[in-house]
Amino acid sequence: MIELRSISTENMQKLRVIIIGGSLGGLCAALALRHIGCDVEVFERSPQEMIDPGAGLVMQPELIHLLEGYGIATREEVSVPSPIRQFLGRDGAVFGQHSSYQLMTSWGAIYRRLKAAFPHERYHYAHKLVRFELNQEQVKVYLANGCEEVCDLLVCADGANSTCRHQLLPNVVPHYAGYVAWRGVINETQISAEVAEILADKFTFFNSPSTQMLSYLIPTETGENEIGKRRFNWVWYWQVREGTALRDILTDRTGLFRDYSVPQGSIRPELIKQQWAIAQKILPDVFVYLFTQTKEP
């Protein structure tokens, strides 16, 4: 494997690069390396186009620089501005508010722009990494479908349950942080005028010793951000003890235990009902409303 710090810009342009993982991180790395002339291919384990998980994102300067610097999209095209940050009490009253201009986007809007900017023939589905071998010059990559590839630089962007990380750092394992995150998105046309007046165009928080909930507006999964087409994104962080309680939440409606997250539409109905009862006891009414209005949190 080549030591990157010793490579000149001219030689960098000759590198063959393989990126493991074709989500946002992998695509950003692929586009940045391709921009300086590297020969880049992306190997994604999913068998088909990724499905939007319904996640909202706060746009960071690095992402804006990549999108605009490489001519992929302007910030205005893929975001909803949030000029105000506010805090609600348990009674729903605003007790704190200040200017804090941020740009909010959605996973789907960014993924589609990045994916469209990368050559489709160099993005490979159903290519799951099994292992890799290093030598002084190159990296050899072994894939589950039997393919073997050789590259000068291997970029590991294969997520929380990274095969690359496990091989490089076998003794490093994730540690549970002590809370889970419920989340959902709702079309703004489905929100009452009273709730929209409180939450629209604001980054809104509710904090208490055992929980935090927040919401903000985001574009659609295809990037539409006109008024009437946007979505309210919310996230509810809730403390859950490790052990039986956590395992119960991570067991989906088919009985399958999930290591990290339960996909939309797979959470057991009784858990949603249980969490709704908790929401009524501890959350402001506007956040209870968001939870209730979400068909599949």
Rank of each mutant, 00 (worst) to 15 (best):
I2R: 12
S6N: 13
S6Y: 07
T9R: 05
E10M: 03
E10R: 13
N11P: 06
K14L: 12
K14W: 07
L15H: 11
R16P: 07
G21N: 04
G22Q: 10
A29G: 14
A30M: 03
L33V: 10
E41M: 10
V42K: 02
S46R: 01
D52E: 06
L57I: 14
P61I: 03
L63M: 13
I64V: 15
H65C: 12
I72P: 14
I72A: 11
T74L: 13
E76T: 15
E77P: 07
V78S: 04
S79T: 15
P81G: 10
P83G: 02
F87N: 06
F87C: 11
G89L: 12
G89W: 06
V94A: 03
H98F: 14
Y101I: 09
Q102Y: 07
M104N: 05
T105G: 06
W107M: 02
A109G: 14
I110H: 09
R113D: 09
K115A: 11
E121F: 02
H124Y: 11
V130K: 09
F132C: 02
Q138K: 15
V139M: 10
K140P: 03
A144M: 06
E148G: 11
N161Q: 10
S162Y: 05
L168A: 04
P170V: 00
N171E: 03
V173E: 14
H175Q: 02
Y176F: 01
Y176M: 01
G178S: 04
R183W: 02
V185G: 02
T189F: 13
Q190G: 05
I191N: 01
E197T: 15
L199K: 05
F203Y: 14
T204G: 08
F206A: 12
P209N: 04
S210W: 04
T211A: 12
L214H: 07
Y216R: 13
Y216S: 09
P219V: 10
G223W: 05
G223D: 11
G223T: 09
N225W: 06
E226F: 08
R231W: 04
F232M: 12
V235P: 04
Q239N: 08
R241A: 14
T244V: 00
L246C: 01
L250C: 04
R253I: 10
L256M: 13
F257N: 00
S261M: 12
S261F: 14
S261A: 12
V262M: 02
G265K: 06
I267L: 15
Q274K: 03
A277S: 05
I278K: 00
I278M: 11
Q280L: 09
K281H: 04
K281Q: 14
I282D: 04
P284F: 02
P284V: 06
F287H: 11
T292K: 15
Q293R: 05
T294E: 00
T294L: 07
T294Y: 01
K295T: 15
E296C: 02
